[in-house]
């Protein structure tokens, strides 16, 4: 299904996600949000404001015909960020994702007010802000990791691949592997060590 396409990073999308990380300091944004939530820190809020407000304004400008309305989106979104920051959970997703949902909901309600003249503010019922994702997420995450792990293993040199797959996937002992591959035990051990070091670097890179 389509999910698969977006889930497995290809070479291209991987490069893209690297450049995204350079543009956005996710850790910093989360930290500011948490400081706003825990300490009502105005300084952290000002940082968040300076990062998000101009971008929100530009996005809102493309959806609303007049400037006053786009200011209203900025005002509403950022005050929701101030008043609801405690609903943000860094374990469930990026700060950008959370602020995006807040902005999307504000925009939706305001558009509805403009178009249908309804002030029913349905957005938070349609897209709940409190719970970003669901418990099943965990299952998927594991699934992803193992896929990624396999990909990285496939990229190892053939000799190391054999050892890693035998040891971890087929659960053979190092002695069994030595017999099976007709190699000295020391070679098996050093190949395994080399492979693991490589995996660590690879996975570390991909996780950052």
């Amino acid at each position: 299904m389509v999910v698969e396409q977006t889930k497995l990073p290809t070479g291209v999308s991987h490069a893209k996600s690297n450049s995204m990380n350079e543009n956005i300091d996710h850790t910093q944004l989360s930290e500011w949000l948490n400081q706003v939530a825990d300490k009502r820190c105005k300084n952290a809020f000002t940082h968040l404001f300076k990062f998000f407000a101009p971008k929100i304004q530009r996005i809102a400008r493309s959806k609303f015909p007049n400037e006053a309305q786009s200011h209203e989106v900025v005002q509403e979104t950022m005050s929701n960020v101030w008043r609801k920051a405690h609903l943000f959970d860094a374990n469930k997703g990026a700060a950008t994702t959370w602020v995006y949902t807040v902005m999307r909901n504000v925009t939706f309600d305001l558009l509805r007010k403009v178009k249908s003249n309804r002030e029913d503010n349905l957005s938070d019922d349609i897209w709940p802000i409190a719970e970003g994702s669901v418990t099943e997420e965990q299952v998927y995450e594991d699934h992803l990791e193992s896929n990624q792990l396999l990909r990285v293993i496939e990229a190892l040199p053939e000799a190391q691949q054999q050892v890693v797959k035998g040891f971890y996937l087929m659960e053979m002992s190092q002695e069994q592997l030595a017999n099976h591959l007709n190699l000295p035990l020391g070679t098996i051990k050093s190949r395994l060590r080399l492979a693991l070091a490589k995996l660590k670097v690879q996975l570390g890179e991909e996780h950052d």
């Binding site: 995204m20 543009n23 956005i24 998000f52 971008k55 990026a94 950008t96 994702t97 995006y100 949902t101």
Partner: peptide
Amino acid sequence: VAEHSFEE
């Protein structure tokens, strides 16, 4: 879409 919206 969030990443894309705020990356510029």
